[in-house]
Design a protein around this nucleic acid. Structure first.
Lengths: 217, 217
DNA sequence: CGTAACTTTGATCTTTATCAAGCCTCGTGG
DNA sequence: CCACGAGGCTTGATAAAGATCAAAGTTACG
């Protein structure tokens, strides 16, 4: 990627300026950013929560482990989203309640929570923007909750594939950033059911499937 | 209730002072508060979003209607929580994305979004507190959603009953603020399954059930 | 005390999970 | 450039969880 060409950052696109560096970064951050490759863990459930992360590009996964160590549930994290908000409160002893790792290569800006707090304290507009952005995320989570609670497996799989392929893709082939098993974790389904539903959608002529590549028709 | 005895407000307990009145109210607000009885609708999905509501006491329910008019999913709203944050952004044409109604009698403080915005702009500490409170709600909702995705019905029912009864109740009889059907909406289960799971928990000696009254043993 | 709303319980059906086996695909190394 | 192997995907048979349909109790409230 050409660093000489400033690009819009999906985080600041949402009106979120979490610190001076973030304001000035123009999508090419040079402080505190981490490059993740597939499988890298950003933070683990139970780690002390002291940093907030803004996803500049790539795909991450957020999941909880239940008592017996198995995956309890998961969520796909897009570019532009914030993770690790548990840290914002700054309570001593606060820990992350989820684990976040990379599904595909990703760039993530790490910000010490204390720095974000002091930034927001003198920039009420930004604090307001963060509250608004968080409220929007909350609405989105609720939407996902709705989908998980009521809809049959086929529609849930279709919805997730739509989300992952993105609006702009049109009818081009797109590589899904997650395996069938990871999609299943997100939807609360098994990998076999995800596979079956994708085949069923294909047989209905809604999508074409070829391994991890998918295309809307 | 004795108005002469100031009480702590569950909203301000969280460090949230959304406007001057809220700061001075000491749990007995006298401006802009609405008393709701069971079934009263606070706002409906699609209404213009111009006010933010803080729940001072009682139980509300927040739910989404899907295309065919059925309940898509729901959430129980406690005292101390904020609803209607869609209004905070102040975009023209913003509408509420959910419907909120009262499960039991409730007191709700209504605040014009524009007033809250101008209040927060000059009170950065409060803007930060709101951002933190929203972030905590988000983390809580998200974790709850992720954890619920995979658990069997019995454990999900137990978890919700625990939440509704509250920590402080000990082994006293408590009246659940919701019917089996409403609990089912929250959990994505049918009312029959909720009933059966509660009976199963009772037969295991974890709880005692008598209609809408429940007791941990 | 009567009634309407809520709850329980049973029988049956559908959806999705589980277990199992074989088949692609893609990246690696020769 | 091709062959190999491991991870990922598909498909089938069977089992289990929860939904649906139905009917009879209870509870709570006027």
């Amino acid at each position: 990627m050409n660093n000489a060409t400033p690009q819009t950052c999906p985080v600041t696109d949402r009106g979120l300026h979490l610190r001076a560096a973030c304001l000035a970064c123009h999508g090419v951050p040079n402080h505190g950013q981490r490059q993740l490759v597939r499988g890298d863990v950003l933070f683990m459930q139970g780690d002390p929560a002291d940093r907030i992360f803004a996803v500049a590009s790539g795909w991450l996964r957020e999941y909880v482990l239940n008592a017996d160590g198995g995956h309890g549930g998961a969520r796909i994290v897009h570019a532009g989203q914030i993770v690790g908000l548990e840290a914002l409160g700054g309570a001593t002893g606060a820990v992350y309640g989820v684990t976040v790792d990379a599904l595909r290569p990703a760039s993530v800006c790490a910000m010490p929570a204390s720095g974000v707090r002091s930034w927001l304290r003198v920039r009420p507009d930004d604090a307001l923007a963060l509250a608004i952005a968080t409220a929007e995320d909350l609405a989105e989570v609720r939407q996902q909750m709705l989908a998980n609670a009521t809809l049959p497996a086929e529609e849930r799989v279709l919805g997730l594939v739509r989300e992952l392929v993105g609006e702009g893709a049109g009818d081009a082939w797109v590589r899904l950033p997650a395996t069938r098993e990871q999609l299943g974790d997100v939807l609360g389904l098994t990998l076999e059911t995800v596979s079956r539903m994708m085949q069923r959608l294909a047989s209905k002529g809604i999508i074409e499937v070829r391994g991890s590549h998918v295309r809307f028709v």
